[in-house]
Amino acid sequence: MAAETASADIPARAMRGETMTRRMFRQARSMRGFQIGLGIFLVLLLAAVVLPEATSLSVTKISVKERFLPPFFLEGGSLAHLAGTDQLGRDLLMRSLIGLRNALGISAASVILMFVLGAGLGIISGYWGRWVDTILMRFTDAQLSVPLIVLAITILGVTRPNFGTIIAVLVLSGWPIYARVARSVTLAERQREYVRGAKILGASDIRVMLVMIAPNVLPPIAFVAVLDVARMMIFEALFGFIGIGVQPPTPTFGNIIADGTKYIVNYWWIPTMPGLLLIVALLSINMMGSALERARNKIFAGI
């Protein structure tokens, strides 16, 4: 081990002038999992943004003639409807892609908001301590002990579920974890010499938090937040499935799958194909997220 540390200065010197965050990125980018995940993700993103606009297929128009068409690889399927059609003759792929677009939008927005809210409160709590800390931590304790799903359906079940309320519910349930993590890292960071140095120079608390602590504390947390984007997509889909997500006719993974459940025995592809697309999307995000997380661990702890 001692020999390890003795030799550890070589790569450090080779990477002169590179911040931790950039090192982590470089590390992650070199991982196979990240590359595959990024590739798939970009293709899906492009498809979700461009395809529904570019094709003539409507996602809401009902066409009795084209009901229950199977995917192209089954008998009776056609290349016009790659993933088949649903009980109302709508193209499943297009509907799923719109669903993906909605899911990505909702989860990205909610993760960004919960990150800002949670990490912000966490840094304040960890840096100031005292009563702010006590109150905030008890509050997160309380919130963490109510399962998200109960909270979500309680709120969404009675309000009119739309993009705004769904994002609000996800943020409301997600911020305590970010607050906890940011707080514990801040607690450690606050003890560091450079914070003391800044205070000796006369820097105010706000300045120390914004200029010194936040740039050091936030990037590693943001790295792991990528995994949460996938988690939030699952929740969004689950809400749709239970019937408290964005309401039809706007397609979401959840309501497409829920609608198709009735036909699962005879027309299995209706709930399954959208699910597969969702899984591929989740997989791509999770692969990127895990790679980022591993890169972070490698840089931080040498694991």
Binding site: T19, M20, R192, G197, A198, P215
Partner: peptide
Amino acid sequence: LLQDPYNAMPPH
């Protein structure tokens, strides 16, 4: 002036 030249300044 603080003790540890590695930790006394913000790394970023």
